[in-house]
Computed example of a mutant assay.
Amino acid sequence: MSRIGKKPVKVPAGVTASVDGQIVTAKGPKGELKFVVNDEVLVKLEDGEIAVEPRDQTKTARSKWGMSRTQIVNILDGVTKGFEKKLEINGVGYRAAMQGKNLQLALGFSHDVVYEAPQGITIAVPKPTEIVVSGIDKQAVGQAAAEIREYRGPEPYKGKGVKYAGERIVRKEGKKK
């Protein structure tokens, strides 16, 4: 039994939510998001709350129940507050800069890497060693941050590379002479 799925989702003030069959739509101050709920889960909007429940007690229906509720919470949070991920760059000569709307990364390659921001994602560089990825869609923000990190992930010997803010890198000891 899903403990998360049992709780109804309250629609925050300033957000207009609607349920049309399996499509949940939320409009808020930051924009509009839609989520298509799996057919094995039933969604209802009653008294300013969105209730989610499985259509039957199969294992797949129960497994998609809590995930569907969490996705609905994420779209409601996205249209009100938005989401952001911070990345840090460590390494001599490693830096980031904005080139118009594109992110230009110097990561020790023979050329700079240019990352084009996807639709709905905003990238900011407050310092040359810090990147902030923000937007209203939590999945898209996380995907963009992961793609940037993938260019040069942190290595375990000196910790050089791009990492999430607050991420702990397990360091290895070098070879003994």
Rank of each mutant, 00 (worst) to 15 (best):
I136T: 12
L42M: 08
A165S: 14
N38T: 06
V9H: 02
K86H: 15
A124I: 00
K27F: 00
I121S: 11
K175A: 12
V36W: 01
I148A: 02
E167V: 09
D39R: 14
Q57R: 11
I50R: 12
G48P: 04
K59L: 10
P156M: 10
S18N: 13
Q57W: 01
G120L: 04
A51C: 00
V24S: 02
I72N: 05
D77F: 06
G5N: 04
E147F: 04
A106Y: 03
I148R: 08
E173N: 09
K176M: 10
A146E: 13
P54Q: 08
R3P: 00
L33N: 08
P8M: 04
I75E: 02
I131A: 04
G142M: 03
D47I: 03
V141R: 02
T70M: 09
K85Y: 03
A140Q: 14
G31F: 08
T25N: 05
I72P: 09
I136N: 03
V37D: 11
I75M: 12
V52S: 05
V162P: 00
Q57L: 15
G21I: 11
T58M: 03
G153L: 06
A51I: 02
T122R: 09
Q22G: 03
L33K: 02
T80Q: 13
P29E: 11
R62N: 10
P126H: 07
I169E: 08
K163M: 13
G159M: 11
A96I: 02
R3V: 12
T70E: 06
V36H: 03
R149D: 05
E84F: 10
I136S: 07
A97Y: 01
E46N: 12
G93Y: 01
V125C: 01
D20G: 06
V37C: 15
V114Q: 04
